[in-house]
Write a protein that binds this DNA or RNA. Structure first.
Ligand SMILES: [Mn+2]
Ligand SMILES: [Mn+2]
Ligand SMILES: [Zn+2]
Ligand SMILES: [Zn+2]
Lengths: 158, 158
DNA sequence: CTGTAAATGATAATCATTACCATTGTAAGG
DNA sequence: CCTTACAATGGTAATGATTATCATTTACAG
């Protein structure tokens, strides 16, 4: 298990190592950028800029490459909200603290992260996953749930 | 209500007119392409090619433009499966006959349309939509549900 | 400390999607 | 059935996010 310069465990070191990846300054900086703004949906460029403050040497290519492996490993979730660029957020499995789904305004593209699940929602998802994985022999690792509609602002704006 | 050359009603004429759009040969050809392969997830280029057989004059630009208005009108659903191009399918509301969700293999990108468990899901979705639209004042028009995992083939191929 | 393969970054290439603009076609009104 | 206004079209160029290349640097096993 990796340790930071103050001695604390770094949770993601083991994950990277376990998949045969090396621990590098770029990867650390990019993960930190994610944790610094855990509430936003970052584009590759957002991360590139965010990382540049503390570490100007990191190139955009490395950001893309790192994002790809983080997505493959399941640590980061890649999202498409239809604005022409991919968005990324730290992945959280169903049941974890800040697991959430999305409410997308098709008019103004505003995104709302919601966690107000009806209690049954998690329960049903669990059952659905079980049924699907049995019938189709899939190992299900994640899900994406988004509701589309028109937000309050866009409604009243006519 | 529009009528075909044999007298039958054309279901989508009214929808287009209702939104102030004109009935054109391109739009007819594109809708027909969708109906001709209702089971696939077509890219803009797929449609362009499909349409060219019967109507070589239609340009790719028009395909993109038509897709955009069909998506805005809610007749077509735009999907992203992470292969670098948008995919489209005829939209079906929850409750309609062939409404379905997706099972996506993150390894080989295979997509399975599934309708199993839809009844349970639809019931819960209805309640969730109601709760969300009240709390966030959204008019919800659609939803996207995808499960990600590793398919049988990719598992055994290891 | 060293050797080796992974990782990086600058740059060029790719390629899906959009912007432009001159031309054509739809359909409302007479 | 004509006219007319303007929506729609299609060819082409431009855009912009993502990838590919390749020479150089770096992590880390031994
Ligand atoms: Mn989110
Ligand atoms: Mn489908
Ligand atoms: Zn809105
Ligand atoms: Zn697969």
């Amino acid at each position: 298990m990796g340790r930071g310069h103050c001695g604390q465990d770094i949770w993601w070191h083991g994950k990277l190592r376990g998949c045969g990846y090396r621990i590098t300054a770029s990867r650390e900086a990019i993960l930190e950028a994610f944790m610094r703004s855990a509430d936003r949906h970052l584009s590759a460029e957002d991360i590139y800029i965010s990382v540049h403050n503390a570490n100007p040497g990191i190139g955009l290519t490395t950001v893309y490459r790192t994002l790809e492996i983080l997505v493959d490993m399941g640590m980061v979730f890649k999202l498409d909200f239809g604005d022409g660029r991919a968005r990324y957020e730290l992945a959280t499995a169903a049941g974890q603290a800040n697991h959430h789904h999305h409410l997308v305004c098709t008019r103004c593209k505003r995104i709302i992260d919601y966690t107000d699940f009806i209690d049954d929602e998690v329960e049903l998802l669990k059952r659905t996953e079980k049924g699907l994985s049995e019938k189709y022999k899939f190992d299900i690792t994640n899900h994406l749930i988004q509701f589309y509609g028109v937000c309050d602002t866009c409604k009243t704006a006519k």
